[in-house]
């Protein structure tokens, strides 16, 4: 069985060319290759299965309608991933209240305690806990930690400042750490 590679999966250039010429079979290959990683990314960012399905649908409508604009010299999977990121973040922006930037980044800069111990190891179901984070905090956490975006890139996606991105990331960490501590206490008393 071949290893699942997500957006790392390469597509033959001939498939892209056929899709650009309107061949439905080639379009279906593209859809089947990248729809699952697109769905996984959307689930990480939104924790909402129905919204994630809608996001996948919108992403591939755009990908397949704009495919003629894609130049074969670039990374096709990177192009699809970028469209997926934009679509997922657009969903979050439409569906979450904006967080007031009440904490100063200076308070966050001085902490040293998030990586001294592997506090996350006690979390058995990280999906459930991350689903409880606020929408912006969850999205920034996964965009920064898993998708590898910088604070500047995240700020651009959200039309916000880098300070917003840093604040949301720390908010996510703080909430996760607090939730894992509560879970440990509960497990100990059971």
């Amino acid at each position: 069985m071949s290893e699942y590679k997500g957006f790392g999966q390469a597509i033959d250039a001939s498939v892209i060319t056929k899709a650009q010429n309107g061949e439905r079979a080639a379009m279906e290959v593209i859809y089947l290759s990248y729809s699952k990683p697109c769905y996984q990314m959307a689930m990480r960012l939104t924790a909402n299965p129905q919204a994630s399905q809608d996001i996948v649908h919108e992403v591939f409508l755009k990908v397949l309608k704009k495919i003629k604009q894609f130049e074969l010299l670039g990374s096709f999977s990177g192009w699809v991933r970028k469209i997926a990121l934009n679509e997922a973040v657009d969903y979050i922006k439409r569906n979450s209240r904006s967080n007031a930037e009440t904490e100063t980044v200076d308070e966050l800069i001085s902490t040293h305690h998030y990586f001294e111990h592997q506090w996350w190891e006690s979390i058995r179901d990280l999906e459930k806990l991350t689903a409880k984070l606020s929408p912006n905090a969850r999205a920034v956490l996964f965009l920064h930690e898993v998708e590898g975006l910088t604070h500047s890139e995240i700020a651009h996606l959200f039309d916000k400042s880098e300070r917003f991105s840093k604040q949301m990331l720390f908010r996510a960490l703080a909430q996760l750490k607090a939730m894992s501590a509560i879970k440990e206490l509960k497990n100990a008393s059971d």
């Binding site: 089947l32 729809s35 769905y39 689930m43 649908h57 991350t130 930690e145 898993v146």
Partner: peptide, 17 residues
């Protein structure tokens, strides 16, 4: 920590439409 986060939703079932 990043590796653990990256594994979330790895075993997710997805139904292509």
């Amino acid at each position: 920590f990043t590796q653990k986060l990256a594994k979330t939703y790895d075993s997710l079932e997805f139904e292509p439409k």
